[in-house]
């Protein structure tokens, strides 16, 4: 199948790639751009391990076609830290032992950032419902929820 030239911005950098029209944005990020931090756990939008933001909107990159990224701005886990400084969510995940195998972690961090962007002071229930689309099989979510709440508090300056 003829490949289509796509121009986009990923983590603030201009990128170009050739996408087979059948390839997902996740495929393109991983296979064409070498950004393997976004993970494929299901390919059907059920697990959230591939979560990225597209023009600020949280999406499962396995449900977006690569060609749809044309002209868009994509933010992935690889762009979450600023230089050497981790985002507070990243730091809190390490501090709270909120990851075990770590495979769902990039998607959960991206999803949690999207939550805190629009709701800086979420309740535990709001965090749980927001992250209900991000499966974690290791932790039982307890430490993940605590880490997100703690990061939110720090970002509000209340920590």
């Amino acid at each position: 199948m003829t490949r289509i030239h796509v121009t986009a911005t990923v983590n603030g950098d201009p990128v170009e790639f050739l996408a087979d029209p059948r390839e997902t944005l996740l495929d393109c990020l991983r296979d064409h751009l070498g950004l393997t931090g976004s993970k494929e756990g299901c390919g059907t939008g059920d697990c959230g391990a591939c979560s990225v933001q597209m023009d600020g909107v949280l999406v499962c990159s396995c449900l977006v076609l690569g060609v749809e990224a044309e002209g868009r701005s994509i933010d992935t886990i690889e762009g979450m830290a600023t230089g050497g400084d981790l985002h507070p969510l990243q730091r809190k995940f390490i501090e709270h032992a909120a990851l075990q195998c770590g495979f769902c972690t990039p998607g959960i961090l991206v999803a949690a950032r999207a939550l805190l962007d629009q709701n800086p002071d979420p309740t535990e229930q709001e965090v749980r419902y927001w992250l209900a689309g991000n499966l974690c099989r290791c932790t039982g979510y307890d430490k993940i929820i605590r880490a997100v709440m703690d990061a939110a508090a720090e970002l509000r300056g209340a920590a």
């Binding site: 991983r30 931090g37 992935t76 979450m80 990243q90 501090e95 032992a97 990851l99 770590g102």
Partner: peptide
């Protein structure tokens, strides 16, 4: 004690390399 895990940084930045990576 509860120090940070040694592989924590790789796993919160997307650098850790899993099977398909």
């Amino acid at each position: 004690t509860r120090p940070d895990r040694p592989d924590g940084l790789d796993k919160v930045t997307g650098r850790a390399r899993y099977g398909a990576d």
